[in-house]
Write a protein that binds this DNA or RNA. Structure first.
Ligand SMILES: [Mn+2]
Ligand SMILES: [Mn+2]
Ligand SMILES: [Mn+2]
Ligand SMILES: [Mn+2]
Lengths: 219, 219
DNA sequence: CATTTTTTTTAGATAATTCTAAATACTATA
DNA sequence: TATAGTATTTAGAATTATCTAAAAAAAATG
């Protein structure tokens, strides 16, 4: 049985493994976990003993198959709870993460089975992130940041690269949420800002940074 | 901020304080918490430092007002989650306790507020136990075990003194649940067993032990 | 009331998780 | 490649929560 802390490390290692393809180094992980590098060294040894990661001194960690399964299971719970909070308890999408960080560690297979059922077997969480199935399978749909799409393209907002409260609040203010229809109207060469049409109604200009953080999939 | 373990100790101290009116002694608490008495000695010192209990060596512990408030808050969360599990996720009333033991430690005032709302502000949990309000107020309705009621009395099952799986399963088998209407028909002097009529339909005989564990309030 | 029994506390250890400071290994640069 | 700088690990300590064994206090008993 993994402790809460071990589960959190595994999640972090999993996420960091996904972005860059090779071994996760100690300082990166320490940064992600907001702990001292020395604490990370201790912990990765422990996870290595439990066969959750492969680890060699000074070489960084790679998550094992078993570790990945464990991480995806925690991520599944996290995202299902986020759906619950938004769909059933009327939480706003920028309020759910902290609570889900706690709820994701509750151990009860029956609970998750029933919750999944109660929520109607959702495939995506409120931020557009896919929910792994019971076996840790992810159905990843193709999605691109607005910054990389051509003029004229139509798409549906399916996710964000930045789930920070400040970014989500910005999106709310301009009227963008998961499911919004976006058309790309124009792009300024000098700074990468983009004119978009939201839900066939409202035209706004977004900065390059914003464009890089809104993910669309085909309409 | 109290740890999970501290919260559990406080709950136990609160429960034990309610039954017997005076100081809770170390061994009783050790028994309740399934730990060694030495561990209890350590912990009550810590809780005493945090002003959650009053404690003097060899004299046992008394819960403080602040401790009681904390305990009742945890109990509130426990019972609300039990209602959620039964009402929304179709758990059976004998399956909820273990999961609620975990869920009760989630820290989020908003979550509990919204959950309460979502559940329609329930006043009792699936076992008939009252749910404390946000301020730790308990509305305790008068309830008596069948063993102490007179012949002819009509009542509604509002709780049980024994929440063990085996007892709850027995109740299911004979068709008694929270809300069942019970009339007391006869009582055998030699062993205290009681004939009762359930929901105006089914007559059964229950043992004294069972009669002591089913709580009725006026119909 | 002296003795025995029971209860409770202390002492000393262990495990998990974290930290800071020091030592060591690796990398980049001149 | 020697040196400087960065990354990582080890050493040593603290905190929380637990245990067993031993010591001490309180309660029960004859
Ligand atoms: Mn989240
Ligand atoms: Mn999410
Ligand atoms: Mn319960
Ligand atoms: Mn209950």
């Amino acid at each position: 049985m993994l402790s809460f802390v071990e589960e959190n490390y595994l999640k972090a290692i999993y996420h960091l493994s996904e972005s860059g393809k090779r071994a996760v180094n100690t300082n990166t992980l320490a940064d992600e976990m907001k702990t001292a590098p020395a604490s990370v060294s201790d912990m990765v040894k422990r996870l290595s003993q439990k066969k959750m990661v492969q680890y060699q001194k000074y070489k960084g960690v790679n998550i094992s198959d078993e570790g990945k399964t464990k991480a995806l299971h925690v991520i599944r719970k996290h995202r299902l709870w986020e759906v619950f909070l938004v769909d059933k308890l009327n939480f706003h999408w920028d309020e759910v993460h902290e609570v889900a960080e706690q709820l994701e560690h509750i151990k009860s297979p029956l609970l998750i089975k029933r919750l999944d059922e109660f929520l109607g077997f959702p495939k995506y969480d409120p931020h557009g992130d896919p929910i792994p199935d019971e076996n840790g399978q992810l159905i990843e749909k193709r999605k691109d940041p607005i910054s990389e799409l051509d003029l004229g393209v139509n798409g549906i907002v399916v996710g964000v690269n930045d789930s920070s409260t400040s970014f989500l609040k910005y999106l709310d203010k301009v009227g963008i949420s998961i499911g919004s229809k976006i058309q790309i109207k124009d792009r300024m060469e000098f700074d990468g800002s983009v004119d978009i049409l939201i839900d066939n109604q409202k035209s706004i200009t977004i900065s390059l940074t914003v464009a890089q953080n809104i993910l669309l999939s085909e309409a």
